[in-house]
Design a protein around this nucleic acid. Sequence first.
DNA 1: GTCTATAAGTTGATAGAC
DNA 2: GTCTATCAACTTATAGAC
Lengths: 199, 199
Amino acid sequence: MDATQPDLSTSARRLLAGATECFAASGYQATTTRDISNHANLSAGSLYVHFKSKEDLLYELIRSAHGELLTALRALPDPAAGSELQLVTDQIRTVTHWHVENHLLARVAQTELPNLSDEHHQSVREQRAAIESMLTTPVVTGCEAGVFQCADPRLFVRAILSLSIDVIRWYAPNGRYTAADLAQSNVEILSAYLLRPGS
Amino acid sequence: MDATQPDLSTSARRLLAGATECFAASGYQATTTRDISNHANLSAGSLYVHFKSKEDLLYELIRSAHGELLTALRALPDPAAGSELQLVTDQIRTVTHWHVENHLLARVAQTELPNLSDEHHQSVREQRAAIESMLTTPVVTGCEAGVFQCADPRLFVRAILSLSIDVIRWYAPNGRYTAADLAQSNVEILSAYLLRPGS
DNA sequence: GTCTATAAGTTGATAGAC
DNA sequence: GTCTATCAACTTATAGAC
């Protein structure tokens, strides 16, 4: 999955999966290391064989979540000149889709940042700046090329992220909508703004 | 402010204000009752003279936050037939404005719901259903009247709430944008969808 | 690598003096 | 209504047997 951490033992992976469920359901602070260990069918002390601390485990989750989203965005094809709208809509679909499909991990990654150490928080901030930058580029380029119109690319990128990320607050599987439904809805709402007549 | 709780002592109000800051900064679980008491210049045990428990204090914050937003929405003028777009944009402005202007309290109200008791949670869910219902009505009516077009009013109302609420994740005073800026941006993005050509 | 036992500190809430 | 003192329970993390 991630070249920077290829050799996780199965116990470590079970701990990460258990922690994702616990943190997503109850929050980082309300989750005890025993909760996590039990979810992984291990006993209390065993967590510390695989992770330096509870915070270290949280960092591993948040770091890999942002890494996955970055990888998905980097896989999108570059736009031909004049077709920046295609890349923007591809990105909206990708970000929405990832947050829906990984809504538990995404909830942890988006809500538990303040519980990271300063160093870890800084490291994640860099990943987040990279994501924001990737989303901003085609919006600015498309505006300059006159392909679509956007009063403030910074606020438009915030809107992309707000609509995509906010699903973590309310999405539940087996609900009314699929990930594709939600991605399509976000694309339609946001592209209507870019293509609105009477600028 | 709120007819259902008119006689808070100044100590109680200082505790509520201190708890808002602490919960918004560190989360409900990471905040201790001593943190709250100290912020209100009181000592440990005094909190329990004014509130039955830490959870009771949280409920009071979340309940009044939702009450304030409901009151603001109810104050908007009813639309003349055919001008439902006016009410929808008024609502978008109101919801965005309230979340920006009260971003600390709003953060608590939107993120700490799972820490309420079942009874209190149910009570807040009813307030939230009332808000969602108030936002849905003019969207549906305007669609039926052909004033604007909306494929799925439920998803559109979610988009209103997502764009308005998500400011609590990143807004900071003294930043680049005012509440009016953000309200205006949300109105423009969302109304462009309702008024898009080629339905 | 897993377990049990335990250390050292913190928590929400109560009791009782003033 | 405020304070200090305190309880009982719980927390992260470590130590040492297997």
